[in-house]
Amino acid sequence: MCNVAYGAYAIAKNFQIWDLNIGVLYVSAVSSFAVIGILMAGWSSNNKYSLLGAMRSGAQIVSYELSAGLSILTIVILTGSLKVSDIIQSQETGWWLFKGHIPALIAFVIYVIAITAETNRAPFDMAEAESELTAGFHTEYSGMRFAFFFLSEYINIFIACGIGATLFLGGWMPFHIGHWEAFNHIMDFIPSSVWFLGKVFFLIFVIMWFRWTFPRLRIDQLLNLEWKYLLPISLFNLLLMTVVAIMGWYF
């Protein structure tokens, strides 16, 4: 299921299976289906741990979807397009993370937090929470079925990081600095696929880094973080970005 989202990916220059005009929306929509799988898996196991895990993850993924969506929107406002190739092309002179001023930076940070929660990774791995719910929604699954859950979790991480890399870190665009011609030329020699995968793996590394360092939040703290902090900040950020985009204050 999740592999469908890869269709709209620009893995390298001129290498994209399906460059549809609502690319970013499509990818985030398809990757949101994961929550249905988790909910159904937890509910149908007829196990209380699984049920609790599934309910937690339902609440969590749906909430964090909002922040992730709003952060994506801030960049969409800047570029004025949902098309993946357009978004990447607009970053030819520099990545949005650097060009987009403070709102892009805020959006990036919120996006990384939100996708960590959305993909059920620690410190937001409430759905599994092995010390509380043994294994959460996949307690009753073993063998190939268990493998499917884990595979889809990791594919989800890859997809979410891929969107992050495309929107904020310029997709397959190499890293350029203004008028440093020699430097820019050297950067151009690195294949575009290496650029894209490097950025994605960097984001995945950051998420794994979180996972090994931070303790887990409690479920109420987790929802507080989203509804009381991240969502208001990202709404305000969206407004800020609109002003920036209208006034043309970005580089």
Binding site: A122, S131, W212, T213, P215, R216
Partner: peptide, 9 residues
């Protein structure tokens, strides 16, 4: 205790 609250390292 760190593992109980979710940190593994």
């Amino acid at each position: 205790i760190a593992m109980d609250v979710g940190a593994i390292t």
